[in-house]
């Protein structure tokens, strides 16, 4: 709503009251605190991980041995695990999420679309640890006995589907992550699609297009960058998600190859090991991979916000 310009300009008097000056600068402190907090988060992670970076340098990212006994730390398996689990999640959640968003914004009547969007957004409110609990005791055994068993039997000759599956592992983590990022992808894509002007649809209908063609050839291309932004936001959430993943990914220390391998993501490795770490080089190395995670999620978030706001402000290029 741009009509409601900053109302501070409405002050009638030319010399502001002292109380007003105090109040305004007071609120500014708190507004600034939000930005300062980000700075503090980054600063703490950088400062506490300096010893690890100076000791290992790039080896921290490129080496595969994480050994507290020898005090040598290379985090490549966890970085790969993070990317692998997130990739599975995106592969599952992107098509389903975008199709659902199209259904909600283009096909469903309002009385269906509104309660349905509401329900899907509720999924995002479920605490991660509760989803993890369900993942360990319900989803993993179910996957092991059905989908995993079938995949091993039919595609097991591929290294990516080499069995056996224990239920817990990368695949389960990927499915859990897909469930957790679906609401993000759906609700933001739906908003972006709904903000496409009706003239775009009418023009296409005028040419005799079906509703599906309108959605795919007129609406989706117009909203493309926003939908990509929604997917990237989902990816950002997947990379940093901790508890549910920790509970279902098992505990693997090697670079995962098969989707049934047990693994660790950066976040789950930190969750599981941080309190056991002695406070020395191991803790500093954990903070260092936390910093990598921070940089990845920040970049993705910033990129996604820019893409989403571009669609909502005007036509995409």
């Amino acid at each position: 709503m741009t009509t409601l310009a900053p109302t501070g300009r409405l002050r009638g008097r030319t010399t502001p009251r002292r109380a007003d000056v105090v109040f305004r600068s007071g609120t500014r402190v708190f507004g600034g605190a939000v930005i300062a907090t980000l700075g503090v988060v980054a600063a703490v992670l950088v400062v506490s991980s300096v010893p690890a970076w100076t000791r290992f340098g790039v080896d921290l990212i490129t080496q595969t041995t994480w050994d507290p006994v020898r005090d040598v730390y290379g985090a490549l398996p966890f970085i790969v695990g993070t990317l692998y689990a997130s990739a599975i999640a995106l592969l599952l959640a992107t098509p389903i999420g975008i199709l659902t968003a199209i259904f909600l914004s283009e096909f469903a009547p309002r009385r269906v679309a509104i309660p349905l969007s509401f329900t899907i957004e509720l999924l995002a409110a479920i605490p991660s640890v509760v989803i993890g609990l369900w993942g360990v005791f319900v989803l993993s055994p179910f996957l092991r006995d059905t989908v995993d068993a079938w995949l091993v039997a039919t595609l097991g000759w591929l290294p990516f589907f080499r069995g056996p599956s224990y239920g817990v592992g990368l695949g389960a983590a990927g499915v859990i992550l897909a469930i957790m990022i679906l609401p993000t992808i759906v609700s933001i894509s739906r908003e972006v699609l709904s903000s496409v002007p009706n003239s775009q649809r009418e023009a296409m209908f005028g040419l005799g297009a079906t509703r599906w063609e309108v959605a795919i050839k007129a609406v989706l291309p117009y909203a493309r960058s926003g939908v990509i932004g929604a997917v990237i936001l989902g990816l950002g959430r997947a990379l940093g998600e901790t508890m549910a993943v920790t509970m279902v990914i098992g505990n693997g220390q090697d670079i995962p190859v098969s989707v049934f391998d047990q693994a660790q993501t950066i976040a789950s490795k930190i969750a599981v090991t941080f309190n056991e770490a002695s406070g020395g080089l191991q803790t500093q190395s954990l903070v260092a991979i936390g910093l990598i995670l921070l940089v990845m999620t920040l970049l993705l978030n910033v990129a996604a916000r820019l893409l989403v706001s571009r669609v909502q402000q005007g036509p995409a290029q």
Binding site: G8, R24, V34, G240
Partner: peptide, 26 residues
């Protein structure tokens, strides 16, 4: 109520980014 357009955008952006920081890092 008070922020200029630019600082409003900065704080809003900061809040969105802070909300995206993985909670384990917090």
């Amino acid at each position: 109520e008070f922020a200029s357009r630019r600082s409003a955008r900065a704080v809003r952006f900061g809040a969105d980014v802070l909300a995206g920081v993985p909670s384990i890092l917090i």
